[in-house]
Amino acid sequence: SPVALPPFFMRGSIIQLADGELKRVEDLKTEDFIQSAEISSELKIDSSTVERIDSGQSPNAVVIQFSVGELKAQVCVEVLLEYPFFVFGQGWSSCCPDRTTQLFELSCAKLCVGDVCVSLTLRSLR
């Protein structure tokens, strides 16, 4: 059976930003991620561009290929159709926004090839 989605995508979930501010998941903006990453000692924000979206191993899964960061590292992730990603300047987006809205009451746009998602990498240790 498919892996359950984490509970924090449910509308109304309380998210703590890096500066301690609390926001609901549906109210998060691109700047919240950028500012939180700026003051994080461990995490660095990166942009991941959606290059391909293919069917996954099960009917309710998709394989999303991203091009990550300046080096354009190719990364594939298999997630449930309703898994939301945060797109720069747009907000939550999933491959099946209707399902995300139905399951999590989280308004979503359709995730498309070319969308640039917020992703995180570890800051390199010196």
């Binding site: 998210i15 703590q16 991620f33 990550v68 990364v75 594939c76 945060f86 992703s119």
Partner: peptide
């Protein structure tokens, strides 16, 4: 009410291992 850290919302993108 549970409070979740902001970074839990963003998937860490690590290279996929071949099966």
């Amino acid at each position: 009410v549970p409070v979740f850290p902001w970074h839990s919302l963003v998937p860490f993108l690590a290279p996929t291992q071949s099966d």
